[in-house]
Design a protein around this nucleic acid. Structure first.
Lengths: 259, 259
DNA sequence: ATAATATAAATCGTTGACGATTTTTGTATT
DNA sequence: AATACAAAAATCGTCAACGATTTATATTAT
């Protein structure tokens, strides 16, 4: 098969020109801003790739050649390599030695493990959140539920996925443990990859109702029911994933929402 | 304060010599072995640092200068940098921009979060393990308990810590979810840092008894009791950490068990 | 026409070097 | 003697280049 990339052609002219405005001898470029922006540039590249994965512009299996990313972002290979290693550790990309980086493609077995891990984590998280929530926390969750309700009938899948993601992460935020939140964030990102791979026939309205029940139990202080409902909800999510595949024909620049 | 390092002196003569035996023109060094060993070298460096942290030779706050590590392991800065980034992502070292890497020193608040995350994870892990264990799994756990019993009266703290660590990770292995095992591994490594920082007055015999009860409940299939006992056990662990500090005077080479 | 082989292109791993920042050391002043 | 300041050393971030490996392409033989 053929990957639909054409970046070395259309980007060689667009990205190489601003690249030279770094240490020019004519412009008195204050070196402080250039050096201090280094860490921000790295974060920007990371977030761009991350966001593209969440929005399914970068789909599992997509190759991420280092030279292409260098030209797209106008940086050296060292910083690209650093970002790729970070993404690898979060299981978003897979780094095959001497063969390049690709967006990770969770196998069915990994999918099972990811959902089992989510259940293990989230039932504990919702238990902590059910004990620790403030009135403000509940108001925020209700507001998220209202936004969910509006978007339930939106056919654009990534929008709903982002909404649901925000809900689960908000509960983790209520629990107030950054470590558990980080783990859950990682697992939910991998779930985005799963959704992109095996398009689930998810019923947004059904999921929305389950979210509502979870908040209801939290408000009542019914910890056990909140745990049970979260467990049911996650099992239901796992239960509707098919095994179709979809291949893309976009360019890497389009997937990254650049140019 | 003064860090007790003297590596640039005694290592400049010992490590720079074998460094040159890489691409010499006289020796027909087969480049395949040198290139293929690259990933193993990286893994070796990682495991050396990791092991040194577990054994409390590398204690929180210890600086890890890149040039020193380059000479100690005879590699370039790129590979050292890669290992440091990996260790940073696992929260074992902290990478302060432009200020170097140090062994992480969990704060009291982080300590609370780490133990809360351990409880959240391990009660679910032991529940899965209690449902999924085979006779062989139970035999292995009993064997670990026997080894624990022998070492209970050993005054050398890291030996007992390694034993307890193995027990908890074995339960995770019985649960059979690599993702949860990886998260727990990370948390237990951070617990080693906590132990090194705030030396707990842990009662090994008491912990050993709790381990035994956990396995008993698993064997009986009493899932709820296994969960509860694990929760009690982890709370007890958290409850005895003091707030003393200890500073080291060893050289980095000694801490890494080299030469 | 297809398969196998050889050549060419692209990509990755590693290294050494340069500039910028931080830390240490030495000096002068109060 | 202690503090403040300045020079020097050490360390880190980034980059460009070289060799090795992989992938794609072109050629040739069956």
């Amino acid at each position: 098969m053929k990957q639909g990339f054409a970046m070395s052609d259309d980007n060689a002219s667009a990205a190489s020109a601003p690249r030279r405005a770094r240490k020019a001898e004519a412009a008195p470029d204050l070196g402080v801003a250039a050096a201090a922006s280094g860490v921000d540039v790295e974060q920007h590249i990371y977030e761009t790739v991350f966001d593209s994965v969440l929005n399914q512009r970068l789909t599992p299996g997509t190759k991420l050649p280092e030279p292409a990313l260098c030209e797209l972002f106008g940086v050296s290979r060292a910083v690209i390599r650093k970002v790729l290693q970070r993404l690898e550790h979060e299981r978003i990309v897979e780094l095959r030695p001497n063969k390049g980086a690709v967006i990770a493609a969770p196998t069915p077995e990994e999918t099972r493990q990811i959902f089992e891990a989510r259940r293990a984590l989230e039932v504990s998280i919702v238990e902590i959140a059910a004990r620790r929530h403030t009135p403000q926390d509940l108001a925020d969750l209700r507001r998220l539920l209202a936004h969910e309700h509006e978007i339930t009938h939106n056919p654009y899948q990534p929008a709903w996925a982002a909404c649901a993601r925000e809900f689960h992460l908000r509960i983790a935020a209520v629990a107030g443990n950054p470590i558990l939140t980080a783990y859950l964030t990682e697992l939910m990102t991998r779930c985005s990859l799963i959704v992109a791979l095996y398009q689930p026939s998810g019923n947004a309205a059904c999921e929305h109702a389950e979210h509502g029940r979870i908040v209801d139990y939290m408000e009542k202080g019914d910890v056990a029911s909140a745990r049970a409902e979260m467990g049911r909800h996650l099992r239901a999510l796992e239960d509707n994933i098919s095994l179709d595949r979809g291949a893309s024909t976009q360019t890497l620049a389009q997937m990254l929402n650049l140019g």
